[in-house]
Write a protein that binds this DNA or RNA. Structure first.
Lengths: 217, 217
DNA sequence: ATCTTTGTAAGGAAATATCCTTCATTTGTA
DNA sequence: TACAAATGAAGGATATTTCCTTACAAAGAT
């Protein structure tokens, strides 16, 4: 049989490490080669043991997870990193992947899920727990969130929407006037009315508003 | 046994409809109650047959898919809609979900996947094909795409990046000056230098640039 | 039948932004 | 060491935007 995948566990909870260790060593294709309780230990052991896969909890004391990933990837670029965490916030995911992690799975996941995530990552795939995928998708779903505020936008007249969108995209009143074939004074008016309806005072706050609602693009 | 889930197939390819029909009728929990080759037929049959689930291809001639979803959801709000399409572009996904679809699966998916997507949607979940989930995630991954042009941005000095980003977010030079603690004249300078390096002349083109590269947020 | 919203447009003062140039340090690099 | 790039800043003329107000016709709502 081929050599087993060498795994390093990094988590500050000893109990969890033991449990995972048992689970993983029980597989025919994995073996735990080390355990690290802190960020510093994780970096040290990664270099010492050169594991194929690191199971990393990003809530360890000292040198919190996110910055650590960058460091680890620099020192051990071939080691795959699978984040194992309680946080199902898309922002963590984003940053983790951006920093170089190859997978992101939640602690509430089932054993079998963890194992298939580990296998996926080892095979060069990017694995993301479905629960968090869903929370990313949520941005795309109707209703669910942001009702009263979405209505605010829908309360605008077509012209107001059109003009505000162009303003948010960085166009000047004159560019807009040309683009939609009206006087720039008229553009002024729509802009002012729209901003007023939305309760916004600055262009920056309008841009924030538009980005949140995916009105650009 | 409970009643079967009543399915309406909407796709302009007769062959595909036949194939799907066979596959679906072969399941113990589904039965195809109708087939529609056009958007108009889809609307008519949805009202007439009141199916539980609509399998919809968004490339049908006449009344193309996306607008049709809104109409369907208005007339038959309880009917679930699963989009079945060739297009794995995130933008289609976004619009489809926004319009009221409950799922999005690609034609290249395996039979079993289609069926589990159908079951998920019927159970009130939102199903999205993993291939397209990946292409959404791609935005979050490092490197991969956009090399030569990303370099353009990376050629900027830190200050230039910082200022241009804030400009793209709609801030005025003065807001920026305060925010980063420099004179607004200095902000002017960085803005001008940065724009010059990127070969951009207008704020709108800067915003376009930034949006494409996901520099905002 | 009246009130509100929408579309369109303008005047004019005050605030801002833009453009182009120049300059002095500091730091990195050939 | 010398040259290039980055940082920080300013002057000043001109161009634009912003703000506030006013106006009027058509459409929709009450």
């Amino acid at each position: 049989m081929p050599e087993k995948v060498r795994v390093l566990l990094a988590d500050d909870h000893a109990v969890l490490r033991s449990g995972l260790s048992l689970l993983i060593n029980n597989q025919k294709d994995f073996s735990v080669v080390g355990e690290a309780p802190t960020g510093i230990a994780t970096i040290a052991l990664s270099e010492e043991l050169a594991p194929d896969l690191l199971l990393l909890d990003i809530n360890m004391p000292k040198l919190g997870g996110l910055e650590i990933i960058t460091t680890l990837k620099q020192k051990s670029p071939d080691m795959k990193i699978l984040i194992l965490t309680m946080h199902d916030e898309p922002e963590y995911l984003r940053q983790a992947l951006k920093s170089g992690a190859s997978g992101y799975i939640l602690k509430k996941a089932a054993d079998t899920e963890l194992l298939s995530a580990m296998r996926a990552v080892i095979n060069g795939e990017v694995y993301v727990h479905s629960a968090i995928t869903k929370s990313i998708l949520k941005d795309m779903l109707p209703e669910e969130v942001g009702d009263k505020e979405k209505d605010e936008w829908e309360d605008l007249s077509p012209r107001e929407k059109q003009v505000l969108r162009l303003v948010a995209l960085g166009h000047t009143r004159q560019e807009i006037a040309e683009k939609i074939g009206l006087s720039s004074k008229t553009v002024d008016t729509y802009r002012a009315r729209g901003m007023d309806k939305l309760g916004l005072k600055t262009r920056a706050s309008l841009v924030r508003f538009a980005l949140q609602r995916h009105l650009l693009n």
